[in-house]
């Protein structure tokens, strides 16, 4: 009885969460421009999405920026975490506490202050993409750092010493012994960095060149305009992203064994 009630409640909440996305997905396959009046089946929205150079460039730009900035963040954040792990209290204090700032700070404040510094005080040209990339790395690297640190703490330190005793150079020991042990943290840090970059609006809008758009800034601008063709093409985009996310989650569940699944859901292994 209670279980039935639970299932009904959870299902109801799921419907509420997914109804907008699913309705949009259905309408993205029709030729109607408004929700409510289904007309005929059509894949025109998907054709527009990939044919229109403006939309294609925007999607490609978003992806390149996300992967590129995530890569830089992963390298910086991982090196930072490893270095701090082996350094004294000073490094820990400086890097550890500065690292917390972008994590807890409101994105608008991060974006605004960075923009004032780079464009206002240093005279960086926005159209050079420098400020955009720095902005995204500021947003992402702290999260990479946060996901690598617990792995370092669980690491078996004697293995590193053993590698040195067996004749490995410190660099080699770091690469062959330390890196494999923290690798899951590095990978999840990278994945997190990509999702943060894809989802970001504020930092992008403050630091981007005027002619460049990511999905977020493009969508926000499109809702202000009234071009039906673009509006419905974005429905198609939202459907594709939804499908990709669902696919990734299914893949993660299929590949991960039971133990990893538990950890994934409850952050168990991180403790």
């Amino acid at each position: 009885m209670r279980k039935t009630f639970y299932i009904i409640f959870l299902s109801f909440m799921m419907v509420l969460l997914y109804l907008p996305i699913l309705v949009l997905a259905v309408y993205s396959f029709t030729d109607s421009a408004n929700i409510g009046a289904i007309r005929g089946f059509s894949v025109q929205n998907y054709v527009t999405l990939f044919k229109k150079p403006e939309l294609r460039d925007m999607i490609a730009g978003t992806l390149i920026l996300a992967v590129g900035s995530a890569f830089i963040s992963t390298v910086l954040g991982t090196l930072g975490a490893v270095g701090v792990f082996y350094s004294g209290r000073f490094g820990n204090l400086v890097v550890g506490s500065l690292n917390k700032v972008p994590v807890v700070n409101a994105e608008v404040v991060t974006a605004f202050s960075l923009c004032i510094l780079l464009i206002g005080a240093c005279g960086v040209d926005k159209s050079s993409f420098v400020s955009l990339v720095i902005g995204h790395v500021v947003l992402e690297a702290p999260f990479v750092y946060v996901s690598v640190v617990p792995k370092l703490k669980q690491m078996d330190n004697s293995l590193y010493e053993a590698a040195l005793d067996l004749g490995a150079s410190p660099a080699m020991a770091l690469r062959r012994v330390v890196l494999p042990q923290i690798f899951p943290g590095v990978v999840s840090g990278f994945a997190l960095a990509v999702t943060l970059s894809l989802d970001d609006y504020f930092i992008t809008s403050y630091t981007k060149p005027a002619t460049f758009d990511t999905i977020s800034t493009y969508v926000v601008n499109a809702t202000r305009g009234s071009q039906t063709e673009i509006k419905t093409a974005l429905w198609a985009l939202s459907t594709i992203i939804f499908a990709v996310v669902v696919g990734m989650v299914i893949l993660m569940n299929l590949t991960g064994n039971k133990n990893e699944k538990r950890a994934g859901a409850g952050n168990e292994k991180d403790r």
Binding site: L76, G83, V84
Partner: peptide, 12 residues
Amino acid sequence: RSQLCIPYGLFL
């Protein structure tokens, strides 16, 4: 080893 955190420290 601790020097590895210098780039990230400077960046922050």
